[in-house]
């Protein structure tokens, strides 16, 4: 099964896991969910739109990462998924 993982569960980082899917499913677990949950979802969705991806499962396990970290981890996870067999 195709899967891509990037990041860590360290403080101020996020672990992002992606899999192919029928449509976009975004699940966010975050230590700062109450404050930034919606913003994290928006960052992920914006990044997927930029990449023209409309069929992916994204699980973001966040430990207080900033948006650029989340974006970088997401792009890396997607690249790894593409290369996995």
């Amino acid at each position: 099964m195709k899967i891509g993982i990037a990041g860590t569960m360290e403080s101020s980082d996020a672990l992002i896991t992606v899999r192919p899917s029928e449509k976009i499913n975004i699940k966010v677990e975050s230590t700062v969910f109450d404050y930034f949950g919606e913003q994290i979802k928006k960052t992920i969705l914006d990044t997927l739109n930029e990449l023209n991806i409309a069929n992916i499962d994204v699980l973001c396990q966040d430990k207080g990462a900033l948006d650029f970290t989340i974006k970088a981890r997401l792009i890396t996870a997607i690249e790894r998924m593409k290369k996995s067999v």
């Binding site: 700062v32 109450d34 404050y35 930034f36 949950g37 919606e38 913003q39 900033l66």
Partner: peptide
Amino acid sequence: EITTKPANI
């Protein structure tokens, strides 16, 4: 500017 504005909880 770094974190974005936190939501009101």
